[in-house]
Write a protein that binds this DNA or RNA. Structure first.
Lengths: 130, 130
DNA sequence: ATAACACCTGTAGTAACTACAGGAGCAAAC
DNA sequence: GTTTGCTCCTGTAGTTACTACAGGTGTTAT
């Protein structure tokens, strides 16, 4: 007897509905069931849930996490491969940062001249310009 | 006779399927139709499409863009309100940047020690740790 | 025994598109 | 005048990673 889904959720930080979603999607393994048909989690599956949670917080896609989980349970040297996936993700993260910084700078400029009581709006005008 | 959807797409930079989506969603107005039932765009609607495109590039949500479009066609002084929406969006953009920077720093550290030929992987170990 | 709660399955909704399938209009070449 | 090839039409389904029910069952505490 391990833990029911509510406890697994608490221990891993993954929401109950999300745990069932990960199971449906084949990201985490199907846990045992109790006589009454309820999910019964062992520490290994809880660890995998925690792993998925941390990976998501680092911006990894579900597809990448599936690969990382497979790698982490294979015998061959997988450090290089795992590192590559981490680096690829970092590239994506950096691209997103660059995009958002561009947005921030553009917004700074657009918002700067908006003021109470103006009848024209320079921001809207610039966005509408040819 | 204005332009067909393909030309409107070219002029505005919005993809054809996306133009039809914006119309369905009530973001942009329904254009006139030719005798044959094809969409016939005028310069005003093309301008709105370009506006939506620019707003999306600045990170505005579709809901926010709907409001901005309404504001831009109202008579009362809307500069303050528009500016507020811009500022709110900038806050969201900054939050996203902060999140992504946290991810980037964490990834830097995790990826750093990954190397070819290692049988253990410090990255995977850290992600799996209790 | 009953009330309250945790859990079950299955389905639908979210944001903002994107990608078909299957059909019809239209312009130019032959 | 018809055939080729292109653009366009509607309607529906898929994408990502969840989240939120509805309607029902198991378990625990009083």
């Amino acid at each position: 007897m391990g833990w029911p889904i509510g406890k697994a959720s608490e221990l891993s930080g993954v929401g109950i509905e999300t745990i069932r979603y990960y199971e449906r999607e084949g990201i985490t393994p199907q846990p045992d069931r109790t006589a009454g048909g309820r999910r019964d989690y062992d520490s290994g599956t809880v660890a995998k849930l925690r792993f998925v949670k941390r990976c998501r917080e680092l911006g990894f896609s579900i597809a990448a996490i599936k690969t990382l989980l497979k790698l982490s349970h294979s015998d061959d040297a997988t450090c290089e491969e795992a590192g590559k996936i981490g680096q690829q993700n970092r590239v994506l993260v950096r691209e997103k940062i660059a995009d958002l910084k561009r947005m921030e700078r553009a917004l700074d400029e657009l918002v700067a001249s908006c003021r109470k009581g103006r009848t024209d709006c320079p921001m809207l005008q610039k966005l509408f310009a040819d």
